[in-house]
Design a protein around this nucleic acid. Structure first.
Lengths: 145, 145
DNA sequence: TTTATAAAGGACAAAAATATCTTTTATTAG
DNA sequence: CTAATAAAAGATATTTTTGTCCTTTATAAA
């Protein structure tokens, strides 16, 4: 098991890729993005359609169309992507899958995992979509398998 | 997405249940365990077969048979269960699913998640199978959905 | 020794996640 | 206006995970 679903991994990588290629009005096509992050093109298309509907990224059809990110969206937290794709189970769900589990009726692992879940949430809320652009441009980070 | 797979959630809950019912040589049958943790009986049977093969729990066939845990196994860490079922992806895998990702070739989220993964690993290594028995006996914790 | 019991093992089924294919819609360039 | 382009939308396929069924094996009690 990984932390995120495969869909969510693709989503985050794609959004990073779009963010760093969509400077000054440039739009990036699905082929380019899929190649840039090593993901199945048509599956990624579905994922980006969804992110577009949710307002996390933008898109335009037709010649010179493609996906892009509005300047203002660069400050959005990664938690927006994760919630859009995987929901908030990682932040609020019980580690043992018990719906009854809560502060007043905790499962045996409740308190240990509350701290972990909070930390995951915090990291994803304080990390923004745009914050790795420079490192990506400088080739310091890779988004490929 | 949850932290653990459903299979792993069942596994941990079942092992807790067995641990707290298997005092003084008593063995617990699969029906009893499945009812005790609200899980599909026949699926759980498969999961426990696996845990039994891996030496995490023990079992015996025939009348008065069932699943139990050796006294010595009560001190085993929960990480043993998680690794047996979900593997070690949670502890060592890249958050973005990149196999290239490492300390020297980090993905954008590498350092933030290294800390989180370490914490998850640590909690699971320092929490033992037997440590919630009293609370379970006293009904302080529930293992049901 | 026979019978009943309970887990092991293997095959199969359903559901969910991942991936692909085809048609439609919007947009732009010519 | 027409043709070309690129995403949207809907249908279908594959794979993995989750769940079930049926037969076999081991064990113990009668």
């Amino acid at each position: 098991m990984a932390i995120f679903s495969k869909t969510c991994e693709y989503a985050i990588r794609a959004v990073f890729y779009i963010a760093h290629t969509s400077n000054k009005g440039h739009k990036t096509g699905i082929k380019d993005i899929a190649a840039g992050i090593d993901s199945p093109e048509l599956y990624l298309a579905k994922i980006l359609q969804n992110l577009s509907k949710q307002g996390i990224i933008s898109s335009s059809k037709g010649p010179n169309g493609g996906f892009y990110i509005q300047e203002s969206s660069l400050t959005k937290p990664l938690s927006d992507i994760v919630e859009a794709v995987d929901g908030n189970g990682l932040f609020y769900g019980c580690a043992l899958g018990l719906s009854q589990c809560s502060e007043v009726n905790p499962c045996p692992l409740h308190h240990q995992f509350k701290s972990i879940r909070d930390q995951i949430h915090q990291v994803l809320r304080q990390t923004t979509i745009g914050e790795f652009n420079e490192e990506l441009i400088n080739g310091l980070f890779s988004l490929k398998k």
